[in-house]
Design a protein around this nucleic acid. Structure first.
Lengths: 204, 204
DNA sequence: CCTACCGATCGGTAGG
DNA sequence: CCTACCGATCGGTAGG
């Protein structure tokens, strides 16, 4: 993602940081210490530059937060758009959104992690939370449609099914680390198996 | 829980706050703003007392955190102890732990929420995270036992099943609010149904 | 002398 | 990108 903290031939001045490489460091710190508890001095120390150097690239601390949250949200909405383009059964589109969300979560882990930890203290956070709720509405719509098509159980409310389903997906940020033994593909398979078919063996 | 910010007959001095009522206010603020981002002045303002009055009851900010985390962890470990006393099938003990965890989560929501948002920046947080990992090991052991008894599917690793299961349970803190339309009992039923049997209708 | 605080201020550090 | 700063606020403690 951020391989651009390097010399670009033909450009003047010091190599220095780009907004992207700066964003990677900021998001890592926000996730470690919390957004509000992270100081710009800490971020500067982490990046090996001064606080003022950061303000050369971005106008404020909250703008770093906005850029990070938009990156996660844009990737998640791209998944719902891809799923919406299909005309197949709603249960298949739901599975597509679950697999796509796991893929985005693995590919953009720090950004999705930050998104899921929002408290809504600032205006930027509240705007991001609105977009999250819009994502939830889309998923709930898919669950409801799949229920009407007879592919989802009717003894649990679709909104509740949707919340439990994405509760499971979102909880992956708490422990999943790409590059380990478990690939994002294998993780997707396990998540779909457990959430769609349950952990219990069919009795009998 | 904290009804003791009232006059106790026979005691001298002002009624004032108890450690328990103080803890309720502290945990509410910690969850809103984050532990590190919460100042003792904010807490004092919220409680309608001075900062010095807080230090009359507790020696430090981190002691408030410790008390809150221990309350959540003690309640969760009580559930595993109750489940461990049973000699029935492991799948039944697993269900007991899931239902008990949902009950604790609903009854002690602010305290469990705080526990699940730990970053591990302080020694107190790291100690609490160790106790959480011990809880996870107990649950994984139950899943493994239930698998050996033929009641849990064998195509997903027990540690992964355990993580997905408690990912679902823990995600309840993100949206569940007691006192609404959904009782903790109904929520338990839905969680057990979805996690044990899946959201999909059995094909055919 | 007790419990339950208050008004003021300490040495350091925050975001900008 | 740096040095040199600002208004304010941090967790914690003094005497009464």
């Amino acid at each position: 993602m951020s391989v651009d903290a390097v010399r670009v031939p033909g450009r003047r001045g010091r190599p220095g940081h780009s907004v992207d490489s700066l964003l990677d460091g900021a998001v890592a710190l926000f996730n470690e210490r919390g957004y509000e508890a992270t100081s710009m001095d800490e971020l500067a120390a982490r990046l090996g530059i001064t606080k003022s150097a950061i303000y050369h690239h971005v106008p404020s601390k909250v703008e770093l937060l906005r850029l990070a949250l938009d990156r996660a949200l844009d990737a998640l909405f791209a998944v719902t758009q891809e799923a919406g383009a299909s005309t197949g059964p709603a249960i298949d589109r739901l599975e597509y959104v679950v697999r796509g969300s796991v893929r985005v979560l693995a590919a953009e882990l720090p950004f999705v992690t930050l998104l899921l930890r929002l408290r809504g203290n600032t205006e930027v956070e509240r705007t991001a939370l609105q977009r999250r709720r819009e994502f939830d509405r889309i998923v709930t719509g898919l669950v409801r449609a799949a229920e009407h098509e007879g592919d989802v159980r009717t003894d649990v409310d679709p909104a509740l099914v949707s919340r439990l389903l994405f509760g499971t997906v979102n909880s992956l940020t708490e422990w999943y680390r790409p590059g380990g033994d478990l690939s994002a593909e294998d993780l997707s398979d396990a998540v779909v198996t457990i959430t769609f078919s349950g952990l219990r063996t069919t009795p009998g």
